[in-house]
């Protein structure tokens, strides 16, 4: 393992009655692209706020680049870039003014660190005189990333950066993250989209304030314990409902225009096809498939 950038041990945080983070432990290596996947309310934002020194932990220790989030919070604030989940730039300032503002308060200039943001900023530069509030979702997110990067942080905290952003922009955004990782920046990113998990070096699956598993995307897929089939038929809704009643079925999920059906052990494809035909399903297609990362997380979350 490389030197550790973020070290979290037995972290607990509660808000009156609700436990937002429950005894969490994980380490992130320097230069790693580390993802947190989980539904809303899993505790991702709370975790990011503690790591960016905005909230105090109730129990446990957290260090970022060797600095304690409670005692050395000023040093952490100097070297980390943070992109909150909600678009949090000044809507009444133009693109350029926002960028300049964040450069100045970090004691630097846009010119000084232009290299780092060049790839990203160039895409929104044609609109640099436009008010930030009038940008599209994808452009807002690029601007926010530029602002978080402008002081050349050693570590980036991106809280659901791709929520509410179109598919193309999402893809572009992850391309940018890869380039930033190559520049040596440690990146912690959270997302509710499971498909994005496969783009991280390692992924932590979070649910109800706990980390269910931490591993590389490949390991996640390799550890999938079930046999999986993709089933297609004319009426997908009816199909989903009936598949759940098929003897031996472990789980059924809709996946675009097909259903992913999982069995605990081996299953007979022909039997299933016959069973569906008997239920009046037209043009039934059944193919055995490899689990993708979403199948794995769905399984982990129900486990």
């Amino acid at each position: 393992m490389h030197p550790v950038s973020v070290r979290v041990d037995n972290l607990t945080k509660r808000f009156s009655e609700t436990v937002a983070l429950d005894d969490i432990t994980f380490h992130v290596g320097k230069g790693e692209l580390f993802g947190f996947i989980g539904p809303d309310g899993a505790g991702k934002t709370t975790l990011f706020r503690i790591l960016t020194t905005l909230l105090l932990p109730d129990r446990g220790t957290c260090t970022v680049e060797g600095c304690d989030v409670v005692k050395d919070y000023k040093r952490i604030r100097n070297m980390s870039g943070y992109m909150p989940g909600r678009f949090s730039l000044y809507q009444d300032l133009t693109v350029e003014e926002n960028l300049n503002f964040f450069a100045t308060i970090f004691g630097t200039t846009v010119h000084e660190n232009y290299d780092l943001i060049k790839d990203i900023y160039q895409q929104i530069e044609p609109f640099k005189d436009r008010k930030a509030g009038k940008l599209s979702g994808g452009m807002k997110q690029k601007l926010a990333l530029s602002c978080a990067l402008i002081h050349k942080p050693e570590i980036l905290f991106l809280d659901e950066p791709t929520t509410g952003v179109d598919a193309v922009s999402r893809l572009e955004f992850w391309e940018m993250l890869k380039r930033l990782k190559e520049a040596g920046i440690t990146i912690l990113v959270s997302t509710p989209y499971m498909d994005e998990a496969s783009l991280c070096d390692r992924v932590a699956l979070m649910q109800n304030g706990r980390i269910m598993s931490i591993s590389t995307p490949l390991e996640v897929i390799r550890n999938y314990p079930l046999t999986l089939y993709s089933v297609k038929a004319g009426d997908i809704y009816q199909l989903l409902g009936e598949l759940r009643n098929y003897p031996g079925v472990h789980s059924v999920y809709a996946f675009g225009q097909s259903a992913h059906v999982a069995f605990k052990g081996p299953a007979n494809q022909a039997d299933l096809a016959a069973w569906l035909k008997a239920k009046n399903h037209q043009s039934v297609e059944i193919t055995p498939i490899e689990a993708n990362i979403e199948d794995c997380f769905m399984e982990l979350m129900t486990a």
Partner: peptide, 13 residues
């Protein structure tokens, strides 16, 4: 309200 306070706090200001 706009969440920009979060960014100001995280800055070295």
């Amino acid at each position: 309200e706009l969440g920009t306070m979060e960014l100001l706090l995280v800055s070295p200001l």
